[in-house]
Lab assay of single mutants.
Amino acid sequence: MAAAAAAGAGPEMVRGQVFDVGPRYTNLSYIGEGAYGMVCSAYDNVNKVRVAIKKISPFEHQTYCQRTLREIKILLRFRHENIIGINDIIRAPTIEQMKDVYIVQDLMETDLYKLLKTQHLSNDHICYFLYQILRGLKYIHSANVLHRDLKPSNLLLNTTCDLKICDFGLARVADPDHDHTGFLTEYVATRWYRAPEIMLNSKGYTKSIDIWSVGCILAEMLSNRPIFPGKHYLDQLNHILGILGSPSQEDLNCIINLKARNYLLSLPHKNKVPWNRLFPNADSKALDLLDKMLTFNPHKRIEVEQALAHPYLEQYYDPSDEPIAEAPFKFDMELDDLPKEKLKELIFEETARFQPGYRS
Results as ranks from 00 to 15, higher is better:
85 G>K: 11
219 A>T: 13
317 Y>T: 06
314 E>W: 00
337 D>C: 04
219 A>D: 09
72 I>G: 00
66 Q>C: 12
31 I>E: 02
306 Q>P: 10
239 H>K: 07
171 A>I: 06
7 A>T: 13
28 L>P: 10
88 D>A: 11
131 Y>E: 01
140 I>D: 09
167 D>K: 07
159 T>I: 12
264 L>S: 03
20 D>E: 15
194 R>H: 08
176 P>M: 01
173 V>P: 02
21 V>T: 13
201 N>D: 04
353 R>Q: 10
324 I>M: 02
102 Y>D: 13
59 F>V: 15
191 R>L: 13
83 I>A: 03
155 L>W: 07
140 I>S: 11
202 S>H: 06
272 K>A: 07
83 I>T: 04
11 P>N: 09
237 L>I: 04
129 F>Y: 14
123 N>S: 07
141 H>F: 03
346 L>K: 11
286 A>T: 13
114 K>A: 10
231 K>H: 04
197 E>V: 14
137 L>K: 05
83 I>Y: 01
284 S>D: 03
191 R>D: 11
334 E>M: 00
339 P>Y: 07
162 D>V: 13
54 K>R: 13
252 L>G: 06
180 H>T: 09
268 P>T: 14
296 F>M: 02
313 L>A: 07
41 S>Q: 04
296 F>Q: 04
9 A>T: 12
213 S>N: 11
101 V>S: 06
14 V>N: 07
119 Q>Y: 06
328 P>W: 02
246 S>I: 13
247 P>L: 10
281 N>S: 00
28 L>H: 04
159 T>C: 09
93 P>G: 01
152 P>V: 01
181 T>V: 05
11 P>I: 06
199 M>Q: 03
289 L>F: 04
302 I>Q: 08
213 S>I: 11
138 K>I: 14
230 G>D: 14
114 K>M: 04
300 K>Y: 08
348 F>W: 04
202 S>P: 03
139 Y>V: 04
307 A>N: 02
137 L>R: 11
305 E>N: 08
157 L>C: 07
274 P>V: 07
352 A>F: 03
336 D>R: 02
28 L>D: 01
346 L>W: 03
40 C>G: 12
356 P>W: 01
87 N>T: 13
197 E>H: 05
300 K>C: 05
112 L>V: 06
140 I>F: 14
106 D>Q: 00
110 T>Q: 06
115 L>P: 00
327 A>P: 10
340 K>C: 02
201 N>M: 07
216 C>E: 04
205 Y>T: 11
72 I>L: 12
254 C>K: 04
172 R>I: 03
235 D>P: 07
182 G>T: 12
331 F>E: 01
254 C>Q: 05
51 V>I: 15
178 H>W: 03
138 K>Q: 12
284 S>T: 14
228 F>D: 01
321 D>S: 01
339 P>C: 04
281 N>C: 06
116 L>D: 06
172 R>E: 09
294 L>K: 04
244 L>T: 03
